[in-house]
Design a protein around this nucleic acid. Structure first.
Lengths: 335, 335
DNA sequence: CTGAAAGCGCTAACAA
DNA sequence: TTGTTAGCGCTTTCAG
């Protein structure tokens, strides 16, 4: 990497002249600017990012902490974050907390030493179970803004991007009720997470609001099941009359569809299934799974915009919570 | 963030004393070291990463360029990279090329300005189709080492981590031949990529080496197919006698399994299927897909080790190519 | 219009 | 044992 100093020597001018010329300063003559730029071009000069960061106390870099990159939802959010960040001239330092509290604390502290201007993150499962939040406070105290998406904490006052989880399942349930389903099972594979709790609430409320629904709402929690597939398969034994399944996580919907088909259940005639999966699973099933689309990419992009707005605004902005719309994509597994 | 300077003032000593004390220099008295460390602890001092990077001309950061984060193979490699890098004390700046040449060039240049010590990457599809490689040369000329994984370029002399693609399909094909299959179809959804070409070669060679195989080898290229599912479904019409399918990409194996099942083909009795999918798809099918495991996480970890070795070694190391073993996981879709 | 110098936070050679 | 100083690469104020 060639530096200003070296350019200056080659040009027989001072360092500051080169710097100013390259920044089109009005202090420098047209003539000199041209000369400097030519030579800079030849030697392929680019300003050293680290020096700039030190000088400006700004890195133009966002720290991203993802609980689990193998989960397609998070992968897609990251995709959205990367796209928007790169559009706005920001780089990404990515850490993966692997759902662990310690790793999350670590990543946060590691990057809070000047490496990034702010954070975009989703809370690790372990952190959420144990309701930890002091580490977030510590970061915010150090004037590093955080944007939380999907898994957020009420204890922390920061920008948030979420979907309306309650509303999502409320809508889904309502749809199944309108189909005339009377034995709806909700599969909850994420009960420790707040989003899991909210989605369950939406389901229960929708059923409570429906006077013509005869049965008790059924919630099957599978999180602790050693084997998700077995647990889901068992639903068909335990609840013989099941005619509607809502799967509020990434994968359970597809599994339920598979198990139902193996048992010869005709879908969507006698059973409707709606999942929270991303489109990537669609190519794996026939009929195609009906899903709640969480607009994952949009969640990522919005998070970036929120953070960058805060970083680049002069005034102190108020903390906001953006709610991203969900949409119901009815495909082959619903009527 | 508190700085050395501020600590020094609070302690009434010089900046360098503080610095040395914190680094346990033998020049400083036990006494002072203790005093300094206490105060540093109180104010939660951590050295500024940017300043260190500038000082040392080392960022302890690796630039990672992934063609497509939504592809589970790459997500898993990234997972492996992150885990190993973090173990070795390195951070990751992640870019996603989205399979585009321009984006790849851009990311490379963006990070080559001092942001990272080296790169780990897999080549974008577009780059590989057009056989571009000058941008890699430019980076290496700037003394930034690159480790390429999976999709590599023969034109570039750098560390590489690959699987033995030829051997992989050779083994797979041999297995199907030993099962007695006589009408094997290879589905190639990645024919523009070198790995696609190599895997195809391995298939062809295995068949050529087998004297008792009666028919011509069949390769179905689907890359340009608007609809992968339709293309795969059509195989069963075009090649009625098909009794073995090898899918050399991430998803085609599962799709083939689905389509076959819909047509009532009994698996693995009359048809064997082997795919290159990762384990994540297993929960979506019954029987479980037999696969070639590429040890994606290991690919990532090895890439990191290769790069870090080079970065931290005094001598000039020779460029090496690590070949990661593949293993054949026979499950329900093979005999 | 151009240059010298200070400073961002840190380390290390050298001086005291 | 502690302090002074220079320098990593850059921008910017102030002098010339």
């Amino acid at each position: 990497m060639i530096t200003l100093k070296e350019l200056a020597k080659k040009l027989n001018v001072s360092i500051s002249t080169v710097s100013k010329a390259l920044n089109d300063s009005s202090e420098i003559s047209e003539e000199t600017i041209k000369r400097v730029k030519e030579v800079a071009e030849i030697y392929n000069y680019t300003p050293n990012k680290v020096a700039l960061s030190l000088k400006n106390s700004k890195t133009k870099t966002i720290g991203v902490i993802i609980p689990n990159i193998l989960n397609h939802f998070f992968a897609k959010v990251l995709y959205g974050i990367e796209k928007e960040a790169s559009k706005l001239g920001y780089s990404l330092i990515t850490c993966i907390s692997n759902e662990l509290y310690d790793k999350e604390v670590n990543s946060l502290n590691l990057l809070a030493n000047g490496s990034v201007d702010g954070f975009i993150m989703s809370i690790a499962e372990e952190t959420q179970i144990h309701q930890k939040s002091d580490h977030f406070k510590a970061i915010i105290d150090r004037k590093l803004p955080i944007v939380m998406f999907d898994r957020t904490s009420e204890k922390i006052d920061c920008d948030k991007v979420i979907i309306d989880d309650f509303q999502a399942t409320y809508k889904v349930t309502k749809h199944l009720l309108e189909e005339g389903r009377q034995n709806i099972v909700l599969i909850n594979n994420i009960e420790e997470l707040n989003v899991g709790k909210l989605r369950t609430k939406g389901f229960l409320q929708a059923i409570a609001d429906n006077v013509s629904y005869k049965n008790e709402p059924i919630v099957v929690s599978t999180s602790k099941a050693d084997d998700l597939e077995t647990a889901i398969d068992a639903i068909f034994d335990t609840h013989k009359a099941v005619d509607g399944i809502i799967a509020i996580d990434n994968v359970s919907g597809v599994i339920a569809l598979n198990k139902a088909q193996k048992r010869g259940v005709s879908i969507p005639e006698t059973l409707s299934i709606i999942g929270f999966s991303d489109e990537n699973v669609l190519q794996f099933t026939t009929p195609k799974l009906s899903t709640v689309s969480q607009h994952s990419q949009e969640i990522g992009a919005t998070s970036v915009r929120l953070l960058v707005d805060r970083l680049e605004s002069k005034e102190k902005l108020k903390q906001t919570t953006k709610v991203i719309d969900v949409s119901l994509h009815l495909r082959g597994t619903t009527k």
